[in-house]
Design a binder for these strands. Structure first.
Lengths: 213, 213, 213, 213
DNA sequence: GATGAATGAGCATTCATTCAT
DNA sequence: GATGAATGAATGCTCATTCAT
């Protein structure tokens, strides 16, 4: 309702960019340590060794800062997952299942490796995705990106694939792979993470791939 | 001086129990409508048509109220999932896979049906599970319960099962089924929910069950 | 300004008197333990094993209860100091100073012995005497009583006395004796209390009594 | 998590120091007018023409403010009492008692003059010394200072002194002189203050000084 | 641009007191 | 008389945000 005051400075000079980066670094550290809700602007400014006023000249408010952080994270993650070189898959090999397994392994690994921020911070992101509409939308857009990419991959390798509903499959696969990786990375479950990831890959393969004839 | 003042009244009389219930109802409605963080004690009391002081004579603070709500939810969910009658599975049937599918369908349905609180409220629970240690622990305990139950089911029907690592499988299955159901219930994804759930069941079956010979 | 609601019940029956006494006992204990200001009606009622409502049917409020306690204390103290039998003083003895010393010793002892409530509670009384007008007045009245008594004693034994201004002397003596006894009883000073009391008596004697000729 | 959040701002700039001083002034006025317990942070801020938040950026809470005020008071008092020039006392005069009287008079006057804050405020200090442990400790430390000074004075003029136990005497003298001065300044007793102070000095002299041979 | 002092609405919490049972 | 649940004004304190220097 209220007109958004868009006073946030967009730094052009080197010093300004560095200051903004200092603030983001400090905020990430604090969000990871004590959580987004329990961190306040004063603390962020203090940690960044910057005056409170400076904070507000770069970000209109705390949430905008979070959005910036989340955006940066997803941008980097996307790049890592989507732009990664594909493995060498041989379409005409005798055993398509084996080749498919390679592909699945590659994708799960890519997803796993893309989650490189501190678990505690990631936890905050996931929570904020649920709690905040804006963050939720950013996340959804990102997920749609990844899902589209997966559909295109299925189409490319459709001879390997046993299921029909590519869209549902993509959503399902992304959803579960992401969740399992979160579980593994964030909660660091008691039992060996490798065991879980192995089962995950097996599950995806059994579901997705044409069985070896 | 003592770290925690445990003044919360434990109502013995009918009136007290009703009042407490009124507060819980009001809080659930508000948490669902505006979220836990954006709801305050005053609003809860007002919605429950109760004085602020009354709120604080039943709960030491807002979080304790949330914990009570979460506990109640999990207790009911557990009862529904765990105590549900099992479907009639015939162990000696010719087609074990078909019977297995019935079992999987039954379990997914049970899990689906157990999530009967308003999606918005559930969203809050999931977020708080990530944000708050105490809530996180309650949730973990609950998850361990369900995982144990699943392991025992696998042992009971081990002739149907193709995988070896029951523990990893149980964790994996619980994790993904829960996640997909949340996605479906909370985000009410664009594409037909039935399509997703159908794929989920298919995936679980392919992964879990001995293929039809 | 506001008309004082004088609803406080004056118990006639044994049960009522006992209940009131229970409340007073509980309050004294709590005032001593945690202080008047940090004690609330609920706690007093709880300690007295009585309902909150019952508290308010015996006392209009917390301060009235304090006043009752202070009154009781001064009544008992007065009785002990004033009604105490006097020592046998021989007016015609050769050495008046020696006899005077006996008298002073007796009075200091009487004052000392009259302070029989727990030091922590006494501390509260002294503070409330400073902070609260009503309590201050009760205390002042009491002090005037004691001062008068001291003047009459000086008159009775005027042959022993070296000073002229009986009134100023009585006020001074009461004031300092009381203070020193408080110091000794309440703060339990590091150095031996007996040394302090001995010096006090010596001081009073030197000041008050005709030197031995 | 940490027991005490030490956020209190320590003003470096002129403006900050002035603001802090404004708050202290306002608080002293209000404590004197209505007492410490009946004054709240809001009122102090309002009187100082400052926002509530400003109050809390200089003091963590009301008690910390009181402590600061008490500290300032004792610092000033000490300086006045201890650093005051001594009167010219002639050790070899014929009449030591006369010289001693001068000394006692000087000390009582110094003590009297050192109590320059409004009586009502002083009353609050005395009450808080009894009610609050921290304030009590500050006061005790101060009293030990003064007592030490008195002992050193007695040693310096030991030829004038009739008593042996310097330590007990110092404690006793400080205690009673302080008390009588409080009585006089705070309660402004009915009878002429000069009469009381005169008797006080006489008493101290008789007790402390070698009689004129 | 940067600073950090100042703001004040907002929220959590307490407790003296009342009153229906 | 006794009970204890309910009341709600009062108060302490926080923190996002502004703005004079």
């Amino acid at each position: 309702m209220a007109a958004v005051k868009n006073k946030a400075r967009i730094p052009k000079q080197k010093r300004g960019i560095e200051t903004k980066e200092k603030i983001i670094k400090a905020a990430m550290a604090l969000f990871a340590e004590t959580g987004y809700h329990k961190t306040n602007a004063l603390e962020i400014a203090a940690r960044a060794k910057v005056a409170t006023g400076t904070f507000y000249s770069y970000f209109n408010n705390k949430k905008e800062l979070l959005i910036e952080i989340v955006r940066q994270f997803y941008k980097r993650t996307s790049e890592r997952v989507l732009l990664n070189y594909e493995p060498k898959i041989q379409k005409n090999k005798a055993d398509n299942y084996k080749e498919g397994e390679k592909l699945v392994h590659f994708m799960v690994q890519a997803l796993y490796l893309s989650h490189t921020i501190p678990p505690a911070l990631h936890k905050e992101f996931l929570a904020m995705k649920l709690l905040d509409k804006e963050i939720g939308e950013i996340t959804s857009a990102e997920e749609r990106n990844i899902t589209s990419y997966m559909i295109s991959m299925m189409q490319k390798y459709k001879d390997f694939i046993r299921i029909d509903d590519f869209e549902a499959a993509a959503i399902l696969l992304h959803s579960i792979a992401d969740e399992v990786i979160h579980q593994v990375r964030i909660f660091g479950m008691d039992i060996d993470n490798k065991r879980i990831l192995k089962e995950l890959e097996d599950m995806i393969c059994r579901y997705l791939l044409q069985p070896a004839s």
